[in-house]
């Protein structure tokens, strides 16, 4: 009994001089691991607009309008639960997961990402011209 208490007291005293194990999060950031499930990003030039991602999404965070070359994907960050099922279901791997995780904000309108293939094509054409 006494031995255990002394052992524990010793460890407690030792901890005073040890570095605290707390991560000072907002001040010192740790890199998320390699396979972290963060925000999905649409590689819209690949997308064919099959709509599978919108169909499997458990929280209806993805809206797809149009098909083929006129596809328009709206991704709602504020609904997303970061399960990455969309990326997994995508047969042509047009959805990539990036290791971002700090999304908190005050403005809901900034939390929707729109990927428009038509605009992209036009922009590319303009650059080409």
């Amino acid at each position: 009994m006494g031995v255990v208490k002394t052992q524990f007291a010793f460890e407690a005293l030792k901890s005073i001089f040890k570095k605290p194990s707390t991560e000072e999060y907002p001040h010192k950031r740790r890199e998320p691991p390699k396979d972290f499930r963060g925000r999905p990003v649409w590689l819209i030039e690949k997308c064919v607009g099959c709509g599978l991602c919108a169909r499997v999404c458990p929280v209806k965070a993805i809206k797809i309008i149009g098909r083929g070359k006129e596809v328009n994907v709206t991704y709602l960050l504020d609904r997303c639960i970061f399960c990455a099922q969309c990326a997994e279901s995508c047969n042509i791997r047009a959805i990539a997961i990036v290791g971002e995780f700090e999304f908190a904000g005050y403005d809901k309108s900034k939390m929707s990402y729109i990927y428009d293939k038509k605009q992209l094509v036009e922009k590319e054409a303009e650059i080409a011209r």
Binding site: R55, V56, P58, V59, I81, C83, Q85, S89
Partner: peptide, 9 residues
């Protein structure tokens, strides 16, 4: 919800 969606529920 579909079976796939229920996975996350």
């Amino acid at each position: 919800r579909t079976y796939i969606q229920n996975l996350y529920l």
